[in-house]
Simulated assay, not measured.
Amino acid sequence: MKLWKKLTLMLASAIGLSVLTTGVAQADTHTDFINRLSQPVLKVSRQNHLYGSVMMAQAALESNWGTSQLSLDANNYFGVKGSYDGHSVTMSTAEANPGGSMYNTLAQFKSYPTAQDSLNDYAKVLRGGTSWNPFLYEGAWRENASSYMTATNIVAENYATDKNYANKLNKIIAAYDLHDRFDRTTANSTDADTSTRITPGVDYASYDGTATVKPGTIKFYNGVPTSADKTKLIRTKQLANKKVKVLTRGIVTKDQTIWYQVKSGSVTGWIQITDILGLKNN
């Protein structure tokens, strides 16, 4: 074999091996990222009735699989601007001017103590929307979106200017079987029960405690009622004087009224703090 042919074959083999090695390394990096965020994503998506597959895919896309400087320095996996508990980092970012041309500028981005704080803040945005539209992302909630693809369309429409954003998220979900891993496992979970609504404009916190319902007829809701969200009301005497388990606290941010999610037997719902006695945190 002539020397040039040998050199050509050797070069081709080297390039092929390099491409293969790069592909394997990339796949390993992506798998490591998914494994590292797996438990926080499952927990946050269950608590907020969101598609975990979409949450994981968007974290991967926005942080370049956890390699972006923002995710490394500030645990910010979604490119969220502003400050978190007074903490932020200043970084260069590309912005579009009114004419559509891109330019670089400095901006403040939220700095989170942990990855889960970033996920919780992201879920709060999807659940609470914006100050001008608290229902901006309601089409992506599990109780409203029939599939993760419906959710990615809603997220893409309101979160990014990239017209191919939903397709990019769907490709990541399909390539790494994120739907099977993060959605199906919560479909029948009590943590993902959608019989109780999560209402925009309400600040939620988990609560492990007990209380006794007041005597008489009380107002019992399937979600925290606000002026913007008319949840289902049940007037009931069945819970009168009963000891109930307290699962969650919800504070309506507009008027600071306090509600508690309680459970008695198979019945779960929300009552106002004024309708319970002897509230005790376990």
Rank of each mutant, 00 (worst) to 15 (best):
residue 236 T to M: 07
residue 149 M to Y: 10
residue 8 T to K: 10
residue 149 M to S: 14
residue 160 A to I: 12
residue 237 K to S: 08
residue 176 Y to I: 09
residue 225 P to D: 01
residue 179 H to T: 06
residue 62 E to S: 04
residue 233 L to C: 05
residue 93 T to L: 12
residue 264 S to V: 12
residue 178 L to M: 11
residue 128 G to F: 06
residue 277 L to C: 01
residue 277 L to V: 03
residue 249 R to A: 12
residue 13 S to V: 08
residue 146 S to P: 02
residue 76 N to A: 14
residue 176 Y to K: 10
residue 188 N to T: 14
residue 121 D to K: 09
residue 274 T to L: 12
residue 78 F to T: 00
residue 230 K to Y: 09
residue 91 M to L: 13
residue 145 A to F: 03
residue 25 A to F: 04
residue 109 F to V: 11
residue 35 N to W: 07
residue 267 V to Y: 03
residue 132 W to I: 11
residue 80 V to M: 12
residue 279 L to N: 10
residue 47 Q to P: 00
residue 239 L to H: 11
residue 254 K to G: 00
residue 217 T to P: 01
residue 9 L to T: 01
residue 163 K to Y: 01
residue 148 Y to F: 07
residue 41 V to I: 15
residue 187 A to T: 13
residue 164 N to A: 13
residue 187 A to W: 10
residue 60 A to G: 05
residue 190 T to Q: 09
residue 113 P to A: 08
residue 77 Y to L: 14
residue 70 L to F: 02
residue 111 S to V: 03
residue 210 T to I: 07
residue 79 G to M: 03
residue 141 W to A: 15
residue 190 T to I: 15
residue 106 L to C: 09
residue 150 T to R: 15
residue 50 L to E: 11
residue 203 D to Y: 13
residue 247 L to C: 11
residue 92 S to C: 01
residue 131 S to C: 02
residue 21 T to Y: 10
residue 209 G to M: 14
residue 50 L to Y: 11
residue 88 S to V: 06
residue 168 K to T: 04
residue 13 S to P: 05
residue 14 A to I: 06
residue 142 R to H: 14
residue 280 K to A: 03
residue 253 T to K: 12
residue 279 L to S: 04
residue 101 S to E: 02
residue 273 I to Q: 15
